[in-house]
């Protein structure tokens, strides 16, 4: 067994797991964070996407021990009790998800994109979602939602420089 401590959604969590445990299983089975989904389990579908130290990764392809001491952000860390994340609001308003299975992964990919590139082109968004398979909604409404959030962000007054 290995003891792993991960800073999940801003809170340190510790568990003892067999060494071959993936980050995805650690999150789902030890921390009861079932937002990230087990889809293909080989890095094709992106349903397990979470952010580790600010980068989106397939949590099914990372050993839990490799995340030891790192910051992990999952879909559960996006909304607060009071308010959805702007991406979640935009997806809700535009009906960007139907069955929703791919949703947590898509939203984490979108969050990772906007964190790095607040003003993405449509091609940038398509590239960012290439590792997330959606088989019912299709991608158009997702792209529109992400564009909407990016634009709303850009419309905000720029922070005053010191």
């Amino acid at each position: 067994m290995v003891t792993v401590t991960v800073n999940v959604n801003g809170e340190p969590r510790t568990a003892s797991v067999p060494p071959e445990t993936t980050l995805l299983r650690l999150l789902r089975e030890q921390f009861n964070l079932t937002g990230a989904k087990l889809g293909c389990d080989v890095g094709d579908c992106g349903a397990c996407t979470v952010m580790v130290d600010g980068k989106s990764v397939n949590s099914c392809l990372m050993l839990a021990g490799q995340a030891d001491g790192r910051d992990v952000l999952t879909i559960e860390g996006l909304a607060t009790l009071e308010r959805l994340h702007p991406l979640q609001e935009a997806f809700e308003q535009l009906g960007s998800l139907q069955c929703g299975f791919c949703g947590p992964g898509i939203l984490m990919s979108a969050k990772a994109l906007l964190d790095e590139n607040p003003d993405p082109s449509e091609q940038d968004i398509r590239d960012a979602l290439a590792g997330n398979l959606c088989r019912c909604t299709g991608y158009i409404k997702m792209i529109e939602a992400i564009q909407g959030v990016a634009r709303a962000d850009g419309a905000r007054p720029a922070p005053k420089s010191a």
Binding site: G43, G46, T49, S56, V57, M62, S109, A130, G131
Partner: peptide, 9 residues
Amino acid sequence: IGAVQTRNL
């Protein structure tokens, strides 16, 4: 190669 998530890893 792959997609963003696999390129990050």
